[in-house]
Design a protein around this nucleic acid. Structure first.
Lengths: 211, 211
DNA sequence: GCCTGTGAATCCATTCACAGCT
DNA sequence: AGCTGTGAATGGATTCACAGGC
């Protein structure tokens, strides 16, 4: 199975989802789990869990289940979690500052190597993590000097495209965009959007429908 | 068309997506736009745009396109954007504080009415927006007193479920969860997850594949 | 008996292609 | 001629259901 197949995008996202409870289970010394149980915890279908895993190999034992430690290790290897990833962040408003201090990045081997902003008032500020805010003009050389691999865009909507373009021009191939605006990118670059106002409006729509 | 059909979830999310450039177009006095153009801006297929809109009515004029002002109005009506929505937020760490000060909420008629935290050190703090952090024990009565309709959960993973449960027990029917943990909810409640570490791991997976 | 791995069936969303209106 | 609205076709992903191994 683990050969040259096309892996569905949702599968990758679910692998990340599975890894979280597995970590907890490992800490609490549970050593085997069935697709049924894991599915229940993650709120998905058990067959889905099995199929997702089957894309990458045979990790389970029939009649028994999956060894928690081994499964977690396998998932982390698939997701590249054993490697440190170098991040650069553009837009040091409240959200940017909150992200740079966020534990989830550290815990998962993501390191912020540089922070940028286009506002001269913010440039030069010293952040809680020790980094100093650089001007966006420095993106190009910083990306090369520091080996930045993933860019985080937290600019306001209007500036998001420019921030992303500067990163991509410097050779960054993956961007996580928090701005509520679509970012255009050549198809050699990946852009993931984290747009919570879309999610909120989705909730509002459904609430409005009921009442 | 606009009758009792089941609207796909992705359609709702895209409506929110369309509304953003439409606002910009309105400001720049563009009064008509084709599905082709709008699709291009939003990076989707033109037929998709037309189909999405067709679920709710006939907003366009054949041979011409869509009137920007009317279309935006229609979308906002569908999404309930003309109504103020009352929010309560649980977990006032860096992320919680960044969200409560975030412009995108204000701009779109979402109002934070209360902020909660389980940490006694945070309870009583005065936030930049003027609110005072309340203990999570106050959730029940605050939800009723203030009419909180949507709950935002920014607690750490382990506490997210408790925060969400307190909100739902108090009658909140919609939750936006920023914690990297699955929240279980009865099906009368909606939960939307904003999980940026999943998105990051997705990017990492694809990068790891290439290099 | 239990649980995985997987082809087959189903379901759902996207895209095509064109009829119909301006 | 141009562009919407929409049935039909396509393409994916999810779920079912069961064969295969413990």
């Amino acid at each position: 199975m683990s050969k040259t197949q096309k892996i569905p995008e949702p599968t990758i996202e679910r692998l990340a989802l599975y890894s979280r409870p597995l970590e907890t289970l490992l800490e609490t010394s549970v050593d085997v789990i069935s697709s049924e149980k894991l599915a229940q915890i993650c709120d998905v279908n058990p067959a889905q869990v099995r199929k997702d895993l089957a894309f990458f190999g045979e990790f389970g034992v029939r009649g028994v289940g999956y060894n928690v430690r081994e499964l977690l290790k396998a998932i982390k290897e698939i997701l590249g979690s054993y490697r440190v990833w170098i991040l650069g962040i553009v837009g040091m408003g409240n959200l940017g500052k909150a992200l740079i201090g966020n534990d989830n990045f550290k815990k998962r081997n993501y390191r912020f190597a540089a922070a940028f902003d286009s506002d001269p008032l913010r440039v030069g500020q010293k952040l809680a993590c020790g980094l100093i805010v650089k001007p966006v003009e420095d993106i190009e050389k910083s990306v090369h000097a520091l080996g930045i691999e993933i860019g985080i865009v937290c600019s306001h909507g209007a500036e998001a495209q420019r921030a992303a373009s500067l990163l991509m021009d410097a050779g960054v191939k993956a961007i996580l965009n928090f701005a509520p605006a679509q970012v255009r990118a050549p198809k050699c670059c990946m852009v993931e959007n984290v747009d919570f106002s879309v999610k909120l409006e989705n909730l509002a729509y459904h609430l409005a429908k009921i009442s």
